[in-house]
Design a binder for these strands. Structure first.
Lengths: 349, 349
DNA sequence: TTCGTTAACTAAAACGATTTCGTGTTGATA
DNA sequence: TATCAACACGAAATCGTTTTAGTTAACGAA
């Protein structure tokens, strides 16, 4: 096995080792590698050749420690198996890379504990800023101290799942508008018994979408039927809960679901019962992901422009990081949603 | 605005600042915080109170630099919008967390450049080990130098998209077996014109699945029809390429697709042409994700057990990290796949 | 008184890099 | 010959932490 020459110096090659091997000081090596005019061409060449030979790479930890900059952005999202977050991250990556930053993603799995842990892991020098979407459990607990502590150290931008108690830059989807548009469309295509499948009220986005739904009903003078509002408890069987809605004596003729899964599940159930879609019952979901695209009939849905959200969020964050004056006011940007009509709804006449 | 007291000391609170403020040395502060018996109870209390008051958190960069351990695992995957990788990551996370490690995920977006960049960002002290699934472009270029360099520094485990040229621990799905099982099932349910929708041959998993397909045909004495093997070029329109298969004069009566998207797209096309599924044409996909679950008819598919793959991979990696003797032989683990029959295929009689 | 012990700290090195400020040797010029 | 600048390099501080190896002072015992 050749390569003993590498081993003799120890596994990791550092400035110090190069210096010792070449009989110069570390400062000389450092300067030579950065082509400083202080160092003779001769020495520079020698050092560079040696460094290349041994694949020298500066230790990034040491660099970050010294420069007090990491050029890395930490992202924390609640779920990984989620089309929308995927698109947001692609936007974040794009924006970050074009401005010279790198991105690291961690997952809270909607757990408060893991959210705190992730933040602790990344805080303290590892990243220059945070982009986070709050875990469900954290929203439920309404305990945001970890964010407060964080904000004093490093900039924070919240996206999608945000909370009014936390004072920082935010980017959110127009959830209210989306709920309104969906409900309005169902009404306009002849549904007068519009139901909503949503989340418990502590989930901020679900709540906003429901508010949009309620406002639309109000604007069109339709009475609110509490039976038509179901809040899914994810700990129980989702299918059973949706079945109860569709089995109601007076069955809804239009269903707005606050995410793809609920919408697709509801549609499956309706199909199993032999209902004709969209004539007998229409569906609109939220998030234009694969499920909506490949369901049959294809699902009408609210497209959220996750990529755009990611780009906006990272822009806000990097601006905050790179501005010296820390105290310009916090912004909240709202990303528009588009109603994408496919075949799970009737057409407007 | 109260909080001036915090500001007077500078934004970031460090050991040194605590020491200065309390008139002791940094060593004392460090020891006090770790409850060393060398420090009097009095001082310990004082230091701890002060640290808590100012939310002192040790700088993780400094810690890692000193300990030469980060307890962080770097994961690099090609795509984010991908159900299978999501499940693998959940397995990785689970395994890592139970052994005290944290996980950071980066995305190569199937680009060679970004793969190299990500590795450079994480290497050099940031992480204790790498878990990577090779980018398509890297497989095409067949340039693996960045992995070779890496391996000398820190352990590497490859999963799913691997390559024989890279000598390290690996975890792969039984792609060959999956291709075989799918094809065999189609044949056994009466399909004698089985087609495959796959990727170009440089994609390792696609190639293995195709080999399984070919072996099954051979074992059942069915001649190979080159028209029935189509390799999707993702740069062109996928739908068009699949349409050509289904529009063939002698239409296939069974289609095995090497991923969910191809399978679902093919099924949609067949439905648009009015074909009856599964009687006139059957479908089997790969990856048991949302698309397969929510398509209509629901998709028969090969379940890959991504979670298990993640757990295996992280176990391999951590064992490698924590073993002093670096030279025990490299392992390749193979994860079984299960054929999950739903409604896009006929039943075995 | 002197030695030894202990309690309670501090100094300094180390991790790997950069950078400011020296410092010693040339060679040219007054 | 003395002075100065240019050149090529080194020492030391710095980033934030831990840890080893001292260093004091007090007290008890011989």
């Amino acid at each position: 096995m050749w390569k003993s020459s590498e081993k003799t110096m120890g596994t990791k090659i550092t400035l110090k080792k190069i210096a010792k091997e070449l009989g110069v000081s570390t400062s000389t090596v450092s300067k030579a590698l950065s082509d400083s005019h202080e160092i003779s061409q001769d020495t520079r060449d020698k050092v560079k050749a040696f460094a290349k030979l041994y694949h020298y790479k500066p230790n990034s930890l040491a660099l970050r420690l010294r420069n007090q900059r990491s050029m890395v952005i930490g992202v924390i999202i609640p779920e990984i198996v989620h089309h929308f977050f995927s698109t947001v991250i692609s936007g974040i990556e794009h924006g970050a890379n074009t401005r010279g930053y790198n991105v690291m993603v961690c997952f809270s799995n909607d757990s408060y504990q893991k959210e705190v842990l992730n933040i602790e892991m990344l805080a303290g020098g590892s990243v220059d800023g945070f982009l986070v979407s709050i875990a469900n459990e954290t929203q439920e607990l309404a305990d945001f101290r970890h964010f407060e502590d964080l904000k004093e150290e490093v900039p924070l931008v919240l996206f999608d799942r945000v909370h009014p108690f936390i004072n920082c830059d935010k980017v959110v989807v127009d959830d209210f508008g989306g709920g309104y548009k969906a409900t309005e469309y169902l009404i306009k295509t002849g549904c007068n018994k519009v139901a909503i499948i949503t989340t418990p009220d502590h989930i901020s986005v679900g709540l906003s979408r429901k508010k949009g739904y309620l406002k639309a009903l109000e604007d069109y003078n339709i009475d609110i039927n509490p039976d038509y509002i179901i809040k899914i408890d994810e700990k129980k069987d989702i299918k059973e809960q949706i079945k109860m809605l569709i089995d109601l004596p007076v069955r809804p003729d239009g269903i707005f679901a606050v995410n793809e899964i609920y919408a697709a599940t509801a549609m499956k159930i309706a199909q199993e019962k032999g209902l004709i879609i969209p004539e007998e019952i229409s569906f609109i979901g939220f998030t234009d992901g694969y499920i909506s695209q490949f369901s049959n009939p294809s699902m009408s849905t609210l497209a959220q422009h996750g990529h755009e959200m990611g780009e906006k969020a990272i822009a806000l964050l990097i601006n905050r990081i790179e501005s010296k004056e820390q105290d310009y006011p916090f912004k909240t940007e709202i990303i528009n949603v588009d109603l994408k009509i496919r075949n799970s709804t009737k057409k407007i006449t």
